[in-house]
Design a protein around this nucleic acid. Structure first.
Lengths: 136, 136
DNA sequence: ACTTGAACCTCTAGTTACTAGAGCTTGTAT
DNA sequence: ATACAAGCTCTAGTAACTAGAGGTTCAAGT
């Protein structure tokens, strides 16, 4: 099976300029070209792009994905390196969730305070104007 | 009270280049200048920068903050517009939390599967290679 | 008054992960 | 043979800053 860039795009739900971008930064190897200089992809490359998109959907950065791909290509890697990358990413995701939950609470408090008040001024603005001496 | 940019930076925990950046994009009004062309800030501007940093800490985008500032400056605004901006932001934060929780689950599953297996290959890579037909 | 050095100035470019557009060429179907 | 979709390259734009170069000003100490 040989794919044009448009076909690959449909297959992987990855936009055409994004595919070219991945090639530019060396995440996808340079595609073969047709007689007229158009990109032609193999199933292997399609598989790799699936891997990249799947990883992106899980929130891995392009840099992390580069590492994962390297681990895949390097036969003699430590079995647990990919595991470590994933583990590290999990920790980051959990931190992010914690941060956002705190944020949610602060927003809620702000909005609720405003609801209680029947006055002309929205307390949201007042609340944002209060200098929080706590954070850093 | 008059502040130099460095003093303002300390007061607000906002880096110097960031303050200049905010001025560039029109989020902070242009500062007065000393005889030697250095920026001089008033307490009002300090207050405004506090407002901006506080809002950023709550995850508002610079665009949203521009709206909030406009609401503050415009005397005859609808009392609930700022409320709406905050409410909308809250929804976004909650969506983000939901997404991240799903992500956390997928990562956990991936990592756990790998732990169970005692083989040479880390299943994290295998897992990322599986084409998920579900997502879009 | 003079000197030193920290803090300031402007301007350009880099970061992440793409996206959009201009202007041109190729592939394919009729 | 011709039309037009799809491809090509290259540049620039997005968000929210950050870093660096190369030069100027301020304030404190002598």
């Amino acid at each position: 099976m040989v794919y044009s860039i448009g076909q690959l795009s449909k297959e992987t739900h990855c936009k055409v300029p994004t595919i070219r971008y991945y090639e530019d930064i060396g995440l996808l190897e340079k595609a073969q070209r047709s007689a007229g200089n158009q990109r032609r992809y193999t199933s292997q490359q399609c598989q790799r792009l699936h891997f990249i998109r799947h990883s992106r959907a899980l929130g891995f950065s392009l840099d992390e994905i580069k590492q994962l791909i390297h681990l895949q290509d390097c036969k003699h890697h430590d079995a647990h390196q990919a595991h470590d990358v994933a583990q590290h990413h999990l920790v980051e995701v959990r931190n992010k969730i914690e941060q956002l939950k705190q944020l949610e609470q602060q927003l809620l408090t702000m909005i609720d305070n405003c609801d209680v008040d029947g006055s002309d001024d929205c307390l949201v603005l007042k609340s944002l104007n209060e200098v929080s001496e706590k954070g850093n």
